[in-house]
């Protein structure tokens, strides 16, 4: 069988081998993850495979199938120009289906003074963009895709992979972040236009440093600014839906999640601009114990 190229990456507590039939996606990954440390002893948790959908698709209109240790039977292939996105999706897939050392919430998170702000919600809620924006304004970026809760301590563990900016968020962030922190622009992917952003240096340097969850928000973009209370049972149910491994963890997942919901104050937040969101967050943050 055809040889593959490969690189190793460590993001927070997880380490990956990314194997690819083509060099290009790996070169892009290497450039964007240049400041990340190599996995200790070159030891990894997961393998991601980027392969041609059919052997001849290695050369003719190359199309990337996302495989690896964990995979989905109906994953649609991507054109080679979106190979970087395929690699990121492959890593997310390994985490979502295979990671058991933390409770995974589909959420973004940032930290200040040892306390973590966690933002969860459906795609389009703006959680990824908000975390990227706050990371440029004095907060430490902890992750834009998965929030990892320690099953023993309840702490939030960073998973600061590349920030995946979509559509209008690309332009918003281009106004505040220098060009050399951006990856290639990928137009018209299955998730819209996508451009990856390298997290700030501090986020990478401190990626083994956990924080205590202090505030949970359910942001919703495009509605008049407002903060609303949420019942604990609603929060619990929505977080079970936002977790990729709640069921797979069994009792340990239940305990971690109930503790989280008991301890962490939660609000629903509507907003129409980054400035509004920042002001609302500040109003809540200043009142925290």
């Amino acid at each position: 069988m055809a040889e593959m190229h490969q690189i190793l990456l460590k993001i927070g507590p997880a380490a990956f081998r990314i194997a690819s039939a083509w060099r290009r996606p790996l070169e892009e990954l290497e450039a964007l993850y240049r400041d990340f440390p190599a996995p200790t002893d070159n030891s990894v948790d997961f393998t991601v495979r980027l392969e041609p959908e059919k052997p001849w698709r290695r050369f003719i209109r190359p199309s990337v199938h996302i495989g690896g240790d964990f995979w989905l039977p109906d994953a649609a292939p991507l054109p080679l120009g979106q190979g970087l996105l395929a690699a990121e999706m492959g890593m997310n897939l390994q985490m979502a289906l295979g990671w058991r050392r933390h409770l995974l919430l589909h959420a973004s998170s940032v930290e200040k003074d040892g306390k973590a702000l966690i933002m969860t919600g459906l795609s389009g809620s703006g959680k990824s963009t908000l975390s990227a924006m706050l990371a440029e304004r004095g907060w430490r970026f902890m992750g834009d895709e998965f929030a990892l809760l320690d099953l023993e301590t309840g702490d939030l563990v960073p998973f600061p992979r590349l920030i995946s900016l979509k559509n209008k968020a690309i332009e918003t962030m281009q106004q505040v972040v220098p060009e050399n922190r951006f990856g290639p622009e990928m137009k018209a992917t299955p998730k819209g236009d996508i451009r990856h952003l390298i997290p700030p240096t501090a986020a990478v340097a401190r990626m083994d440093e956990p924080a205590r969850p202090a505030l949970l928000l359910f942001p919703r973009f495009g509605h008049a600014p407002e903060l609303r209370d949420m019942g604990q049972s609603e929060v619990f149910v929505r977080l079970t839906q936002a977790s990729t491994n709640y069921v797979a963890l069994g009792e340990a997942g239940f305990h971690a999640l109930t503790r989280f919901v008991d301890r962490v104050p939660t609000k629903a937040m509507d907003y129409q601009s980054g400035e509004q969101a920042e002001a609302l967050i500040q109003s809540l943050w200043s009142k925290l114990p």
């Binding site: 380490a15 200790t40 002893d41 030891s43 990894v44 948790d45 295979g98 058991r100 797979a248």
Partner: peptide, 18 residues
Amino acid sequence: VPDRVRAVLQDAIEAHDL
């Protein structure tokens, strides 16, 4: 076995217990 391998194996044991 190396530390990270041990963690991977422990994950597998717990996944199969469940």
